[in-house]
Design a protein around this nucleic acid. Structure first.
Length: 494
RNA sequence: GAGCCCAUAGCUCAAUUGGCAGAGCACCGGACUCUUAAUCCGUAGGUUGUAGGUUCGAUUCCUACUGGGCUCACCA
């Protein structure tokens, strides 16, 4: 239930009683220019009427209002910025002026007239007429303080967007990032595709899925945790270069960098390896950084990050060795790593038993917190890479990299495993882990094995977290600041 | 899922050791023809997140609950 404030409803009655429709159609209320178009056109001109001599019409939400007896100023906000309207009673007439005096902060208003500058030089529309376009019925937030309540800002994004221009700017940047990415791949002969959000077998990542139900088929479906296995089916089908920018759903905790639904770019490139992907990723990320920030250097939290190419490339075990002092030889010895961990951290709880799991743990603990500038980390153990191709010459490792920026994983990529027999064995191992209680382990996807059995050309594929990329490029430190409507608990009522 | 912190008017914030719950903006009424955080005068706005407890007396202290923030875990 939403309860209207009777005080504000009375305003509607009063307007209608005086012949004013509070919610007219747009007919006759269409602006001729946006605020920014007028400011741009008249920049540097002392007398804007010489630039645009005729009448202009502007429209927007009233964000500032100053009524002074027989004259008034309104500042209208439209999608491009602000424009001031100056209305004098002697010019708009008694009737129209008294209508305009009834304007509240937050109302939508249309006005037309000629351009002028005030004595302080502000470009303004000197009104010949003005009309209500849509009435606001809510008391307005304090406009001298930014709306600071993070919860309110994301629950009521509509308020955040009109109160905090920088919030709107964040989402415009997000749009620019996605657009850049689409153009980037189209220019390289990739095609954009859409694969199932609802899957009978979830796959492509180790994560807990959401489950939903299809009534007509009477089957449970899983919201996808990744599009990977479908995109690779397209490679089998001969499409060779595909990408998808879309939502994934993971049934996991919320945090400043996790939302249950989040946006991933995934792309697959036949006849390429993870090494070409590193080159492509550098070009893409440094390019989008320049596109939306104007340069290669950004600041994020207290970190200075440089997207100048080339990015650093380093093997996982080399980085772990540097950070821990353990030799590469010792990093193949689980017992040695266990002793090291117990010595440094004391804890003996739930320690790994294999070198692959140990690398994962040591990397997260000792290396990841120091990876501020973009760094391609390579040489991942096969054990923790169930969909990646084993490296020639080292079957315990894979042709895989993760890109780290600002102490986060931003991208994950590898030369794809296209050996159907190996893939079937790795699925079987995942199923075994699942049966042993690992809720995030993968299912056995027999149709995917069937697809691979037809032959998949050598292919490399990658996923990039769009939300995190946008966070970096906008300096927003919470994922809720870059997702328009992030997931919330329902509001308490009563 | 765990720990710590927060919740006062529509918004931003006060309230002295536990002693009459306040201000600015928004809203309402009035004055004002270049304001831009307009100014000036006046009114109204509250079960202090919810439910209990301690106390002569609770916004203040205690408990539980609800919502949120930060950190951790899981993960991208």
């Amino acid at each position: 239930m939403y309860t209207f404030d009777p005080k504000w409803l009375e305003k509607l009655d009063a307007m209608r009683a005086s012949g004013q429709e509070p919610y007219p159609s747009a007919v006759g209320l269409v602006p001729t220019h946006t605020s920014a178009e007028l400011h741009t056109a008249c920049e540097g001109s002392l007398d804007p009427k010489t630039v645009i001599p005729g009448e202009v019409a502007v429209a927007g939400r009233v964000m500032f209002r100053n009524v002074m007896g027989k004259a008034m100023f309104l500042r209208l906000q439209d999608r491009a910025g602000f424009i001031q309207v100056y209305a004098r009673r002697e010019e708009v007439g008694e009737a129209a002026f008294s209508v305009l005096k009834g304007i509240d902060i937050g109302d939508f208003v249309w006005a037309h007239g000629t351009l002028m500058r005030t004595k302080t030089g502000e470009l303004s529309v000197q009104a010949k007429d003005g009309k209500f376009a849509a009435k606001n019925l809510s008391p307005f937030p304090d406009r001298f303080h930014t709306l600071s309540d993070v919860e309110l800002r994301s629950r009521q994004r509509y308020v955040d967007l009109f109160m905090n221009p920088e919030s709107q700017a964040t989402f415009r940047t997000r749009s620019a990032v996605v657009r850049y990415i689409r153009d980037f791949f189209h220019a390289r002969d990739f095609i954009e595709v859409e694969t199932p959000m609802m899957q009978t077998i979830p796959g492509g990542a180790t994560a807990r899925p959401f489950i939903t139900h299809h009534n007509a088929l009477d089957i449970d479906l899983y919201m996808r945790v990744a599009p990977e296995l479908f995109l690779k089916r397209l490679i089998v089908g001969g499409m060779e270069r595909v990408f998808e920018v879309n939502r994934n759903f993971r049934n996991e905790g919320l945090s400043h960098k996790h939302n249950p639904e989040f946006t991933m770019l995934e792309f697959y490139w036949a006849w390429a390896t993870y090494k070409e992907l590193m080159d492509l990723t550098e070009t893409l990320l440094s390019g989008v950084c320049v596109q939306v920030t104007g340069g290669h250097q950004i600041k994020f939290n207290d970190m200075d990050i440089d997207f100048t190419t080339p990015f650093r490339r380093a093997d996982m075990d080399v980085l772990i060795s540097e950070a821990t002092g353990l030799s590469l030889h010792e990093l193949r010895d689980s017992a040695r790593m266990t002793a090291f961990w117990v010595e440094k951290n004391g804890s003996t709880d739930a320690l790994p038993h294999t070198f692959g799991r140990w690398w994962e743990k040591l990397f997260e603990h000792y290396v990841e917190p120091n990876l501020v500038n973009p760094t391609f980390v390579t040489g991942f153990p096969a054990e923790i890479s169930p969909l990646a191709r084993r490296s020639d010459g080292d079957p315990d490792r894979t042709d895989r990299f993760e890109l780290y920026v600002a102490r986060w994983e931003l991208a994950n990529a590898f030369t794809e495993l296209n050996d159907p027999v190996d893939q079937a064995e790795r699925f079987a191992a995942q199923v075994k882990a699942k049966d042993a209680g690992d809720a995030e382990a993968m299912h056995f996807d027999a149709d995917y094995i069937r697809a691979l059995a037809y032959g998949m050309p050598p292919t490399a594929g990658e996923g990039i977290g769009i939300d995190r990329l946008v966070m970096l490029l906008t300096g927003r430190t919470s994922i809720r600041e870059v997702i328009l409507f992030p997931t919330h608990r329902p509001e308490a009522h009563g």
